[in-house]
Design a protein around this nucleic acid. Structure first.
Lengths: 183, 183
DNA sequence: TAGAGCATGTAAGCAGTTACATGATTCA
DNA sequence: TGAATCATGTAACTGCTTACATGCTCTA
């Protein structure tokens, strides 16, 4: 019934690959997962605490080389089981929240030129993101030649690329439709 | 700084087109906006109350024909100004949250067949949604022949179609990649 | 007569963001 | 010297979902 807390699974998923600190987890998310599911420190640290209490993770080491102390965690067997069980369940539907689309929906109140301008802004942002995904793709295809480990990472990047392509396509078509109509 | 409450704008946007009750607002959202921004009654009724207090909307009538009483609202001049001002601001970036993609990212822990199965499930859902958008499109193109009023609605439906197409494309390519690799 | 739909609303609680606090090191 | 980065964490707040409460009418 109650909505599941995905934060737990994201942390467990990352820890399953390598031991990490809260700070590291945030960094890993920022370079890979944030396009599909972002997390903030305000979610990570309390969840880490809870996962530790529940025995899903262990504290590995507390180091203090330079600067603040650094707490590294590893996943437990219990945590792995918990993660795998979630992976096997079927997924909830995607949720998209687009302020741009929301505004567009009510745009009969403003000038058509302003709308075209906003769509263009959206297109530029999508282009930039698409380039980012392409750069990731290049890195991954180079690594994946003799190694399958990154196949799922690759597929998520592919998804991002296709998504951005759809955004750009739509922007062009929408602009054309609005430009050809008399206002 | 603080995140804006979009609920206000959605309600004002809908009321700008026609007078509605809270129940009506929910229905309108369910047939059009929910793919880009969904709202629940738990958001609608309190926001309506607040908008009324702030003078952005007025109470039009309280009818009680059959069943429970029905409170209809209309937008005020102040509300229109507030809405237009928001429409002219630039938009926050889209946010996608996909549990499917999240699971995919960590799927090296489960069987490849299970992953392919999950992707197929995702493809079927996307197909169904695509058909829904196409049906909307047909209705709208029929109406729009001599009337431009629904152009923005049409563009949002077009967006939905392109999005679903991207999802389906990706599903096919991902399935192929996973099937061709030895596990 | 039971269930679906109409129609309002509240309360509890989780999810998530943002700002803040602390304090060291490194680099320009 | 000041800013950025490393690294932890908490507190306050807003957003949002879910469940509940109420009670009428219409239809199978």
């Amino acid at each position: 019934m109650a909505r599941e807390n995905r934060t737990k699974y994201i942390i467990l998923g990352l820890l399953n690959h390598e031991d990490l600190s809260g700070y590291d987890i945030k960094k890993r998310i920022d370079v890979s997962l944030k396009h599909f599911w972002d997390l903030s420190y305000g979610q990570i640290y309390p969840t880490l605490k809870q996962l530790l209490e529940d025995g899903y993770i262990h504290k590995v080491e507390v180091t203090k080389e330079a600067g603040p102390e650094r707490i590294t965690y590893s996943i437990s067997e219990k945590g792995k089981l918990y993660l795998v069980q979630w992976l096997k369940e079927s997924s909830e539907e995607d949720k998209l929240r687009s302020e741009m689309l929301l505004k567009l929906f009510f745009s009969s109140l403003i000038e058509r030129e302003d709308v075209i301008h906003a769509i263009n802004e959206f297109a530029v942002k999508s282009h930039n993101k698409a380039q980012l995904f392409s750069a990731f793709e290049d890195q991954l295809t180079a690594v994946m030649k003799d190694n399958d480990d990154h196949v799922y990472y690759y597929l998520s990047v592919l998804f991002g690329k296709k998504l951005m392509k759809a955004y750009i396509d739509w922007s062009e078509e929408a602009t054309e439709i609005l430009s050809n109509k008399k206002s």
